[in-house]
């Protein structure tokens, strides 16, 4: 039987030093790796509607973004008007967005500007679908980081059928569609 070795002061110092050095290394490694946040890749998004229903927040932290530099400012906007719209005006029966979160403003004939009211947008993506099919794809979904609580396991990412959610550095938290927007951000 091996005789039990008595722990002396040197062993204690060795152990303490190991803990201190390990902690320092871990904290250094941690500070070097960037903080990550969730974001939605617009190229992969299929506008399934789960962003509106699966977010832990209500309404969802996912909102529609609008790239003005891509938008065609169309009168017949596929993102604003229902496919079966009776007329091209702001009548509720003609609007595609069920929460009336898109504002249509006349600029000059025949151009109209479309603005997203973030407070009303619930992230259903129906306008994005319409814009993708008939327009230039200037409307797209993004996680708003002033709203998102950055859950460790994002409930939307878990249910996203197209695997469009991914972790991005918090220093560059948006996947914007146009270069001009990227420069502004």
């Amino acid at each position: 039987m091996k005789p039990e070795r008595k722990k002396d002061r040197r062993d204690f110092v060795r152990g303490a030093a190991a803990v201190l050095i390990g902690g320092a290394v871990m904290s250094a490694a941690r500070s070097r790796s960037p903080r990550l946040v969730w974001q939605l890749d617009p190229e992969k998004c299929t506008q399934c509607g789960r962003c509106a229903t699966h977010c832990v927040l209500a309404p969802s932290a996912v909102k529609c973004f609008h790239s003005y530099s891509i938008c065609g400012y169309c009168d017949l906007c596929g993102g604003y008007l229902r496919p079966d719209a009776k007329s091209r005006d702001t009548g509720a029966e003609n609007q595609l967005c069920p929460t009336a979160a898109i504002t249509r403003t006349f600029i000059e004939s025949p151009y109209y500007q479309y603005t997203i009211d973030e407070d009303l947008c619930i992230g259903c993506g129906i306008c994005v679908k319409g814009c993708d099919v008939f327009g230039n794809g200037s409307m797209y979904m993004q996680v708003k980081h002033d709203l998102c609580v950055n859950c460790n396991e994002c409930a939307i990412a878990r249910s996203c059928p197209s695997d469009a959610f991914k972790r991005v550095p918090a220093s560059d938290p948006y996947i914007l569609k146009s270069d001009r927007e990227r420069r502004i951000s």
């Binding site: 506008q47 509607g49 509106a52 229903t53 699966h54 209500a58 496919p83 595609l96 069920p98 259903c124 129906i126 679908k129 319409g130 099919v133």
Partner: peptide, 17 residues
Amino acid sequence: SRRTELGRSFDYSLDDY
């Protein structure tokens, strides 16, 4: 009780067209 699906007004289908 949280809704897991959006209502009919959120449907977007071009099948008829």
